[in-house]
C-alpha cells in the first residue's frame, strides 16, 4: 500500500524568516504518530502546510496523490480550523455550520462525541473552560470522516481527568484506516498511544522511528529517546 502522505524537500519562510528547511517525511495509513519538538520548532507550521492553510512553500506535499492545497484542505481534519470561528457562537451553531460546510461531517457522530465528553451544546465557545474547549475541538475534529487528522497540542493546559477522556475518545473514534498526527512537547501524555514518533528540530525532521523499535532495540522510553536529541544544547534551543 502506498503512503498516505509524502512530503519531499519542503522549505517554508514567513516574513523573510525561515521556519522549515528541506523537510521530508512519509506517513502510512492507519497509524497514530507523535510529532515532537520544542515550542517554536515548527510543528504547527508543518500541520498548516499539510492541511493546506499555509501555501507559499517550496517542495512537494502529496496527500493520497493530491498536491493542490485546496483539495488537501478537504481531505484533512485539523484541530486548528476552529481558531477562526466567532467565539460568541453556541456549540450547536458551530456544529450546524460544520455540517453545512464539510460534506464528510457526520452530525450524529458529533452528538455522540459531545455527549460522551459531557459538553453542553447550548454554551457559547467563549464560555467554555480550557478543558471543555479542548474536548469540543476533539468532538468537532473527529465528527469529520477523513483519512488524516491533525491534532495540534490537544492536551495543552488541561487536567489529567480531561486528558484521559480525550485520549479515550481518540482511541474510540479513529476510523480504522485513518492516520492521526498529534503534536506535543510533553510526550509522556501520549507515549502509550503512538505507533511512531517524528522529531522536529533545527527546522527539519531529524528522526522518524517506530515506538516498538525505540523500546525494543534502543531499550529506551519514548521520552528518553526524544530528550536525547536535546542533550548538550540546553542553552540554545
Amino acid at each position: 500500500m502506498t503512503d498516505l502522505l509524502a512530503i519531499k524537500d519542503l522549505s517554508y519562510k514567513r516574513n523573510m524568516h525561515t521556519i522549515l528547511t528541506d523537510l521530508s517525511l512519509t506517513l502510512p495509513h492507519n497509524a497514530i504518530i507523535g510529532l515532537l519538538g520544542a515550542n517554536g520548532a515548527g510543528k504547527t507550521t508543518l500541520m498548516r502546510l499539510i492541511a493546506g492553510s499555509a501555501t507559499e512553500f517550496h517542495g512537494e506535499i502529496r496527500l493520497n496523490d493530491e498536491t493542490a492545497a485546496s483539495i488537501r484542505k478537504s481531505m484533512v481534519s485539523f484541530s486548528e480550523q476552529l481558531a477562526g470561528l466567532n467565539p460568541g457562537m453556541k456549540l450547536n451553531q458551530i456544529a450546524d455550520f460544520y455540517d453545512r460546510v464539510y460534506p464528510d461531517f457526520v452530525r450524529a457522530d458529533f452528538d455522540k462525541l459531545a455527549q460522551q465528553l459531557e459538553l453542553d451544546l447550548q454554551k457559547r465557545l467563549n464560555q467554555l473552560s480550557k478543558g471543555n474547549q479542548r474536548k469540543f475541538t476533539i468532538a468537532i475534529t473527529f465528527a469529520r470522516h477523513v483519512q488524516l487528522y491533525l491534532l495540534d497540542e490537544p492536551f495543552n493546559g488541561i487536567d489529567s481527568m480531561n486528558r484521559k477522556k480525550i485520549i479515550a475518545s481518540i482511541i474510540q473514534w479513529k476510523p480504522e484506516m485513518a492516520t492521526i498526527l498529534i503534536s506535543d512537547h510533553h510526550v509522556t501524555d501520549i507515549a502509550n498511544l503512538l505507533d511512531q514518533v517524528i522529531v522536529v528540530q533545527h527546522q527539519t525532521v531529524v528522526a522518524q522511528e517506530k515506538a516498538d523499535t525505540i523500546r525494543e532495540k534502543h531499550n529506551q522510553s519514548i521520552e528518553d529517546y526524544y530528550e536525547s536529541f536535546y542533550e548538550g544544547e540546553n542553552e540554545h534551543d
Binding site: N30, K164, A168, I171, N192, L193
Partner: peptide, 14 residues
C-alpha cells in the same frame, strides 16, 4: 479489540 484498546488506553494496532 477497540474495547480492549480503550480499557488499556493504548492504540488499536498495539
Amino acid at each position: 479489540v477497540r474495547q480492549l484498546a480503550v480499557k488499556l488506553t493504548v492504540n488499536v494496532n498495539t
